[in-house]
């Protein structure tokens, strides 16, 4: 298909999105990520039944925390797609990229740099 998606995105493979816990999302931001996007299988199609639902809850919890501490909840997002749907993956990747460009860099990354 040779589809392109923004180079700003670094892919982290997990066995199932259900494995992605709140702490993993928070740590990414702590380390300076500008955004975290969890992409799971379609709802109802999780091989482990509820992994993608659990992931969505974890993303929502992380969003709440990020909002409370002034980093911005919109920086964490959850998408669902079928593993065979490359074009949609590219579309989602562009979407999260655009959203983050709009929000700007992770504020703690900037402050970390200033302190250093």
């Amino acid at each position: 298909m040779r589809l392109t998606y923004p180079t700003s995105i670094k892919i982290v493979l997990v066995p199932c999105t259900g494995k992605v816990d709140v702490i993993h999302i928070l740590r990414a931001f702590e380390k300076g990520a500008d955004g975290v996007c969890v992409i799971g299988c379609m709802e109802g199609e999780c091989h482990f039944k509820s992994g993608n639902f659990r992931a969505r809850k974890h993303v929502e919890q992380a969003q709440k925390i990020l909002e409370t501490i002034g980093i911005g909840g919109g920086r964490a997002q959850m998408y669902n797609l079928s593993a065979g749907d490359g074009p949609l993956f590219a579309e989602y990747a562009q979407d999260i990229h655009d959203k983050i460009m709009e929000l700007g860099p992770n504020p703690i990354k900037l402050k970390k740099h200033k302190a250093a």
Binding site: D21, V22, I23, E30, I108, K112
Partner: peptide
């Protein structure tokens, strides 16, 4: 342990965002 990790990470980011160490 899990909740300790989440709270610690949250507080670390809170302080950094406030420009405090």
């Amino acid at each position: 342990k899990k909740e300790v990790g989440v709270l610690a990470s949250t507080l670390r980011m809170y302080f950094l965002n406030q420009g405090k160490e």
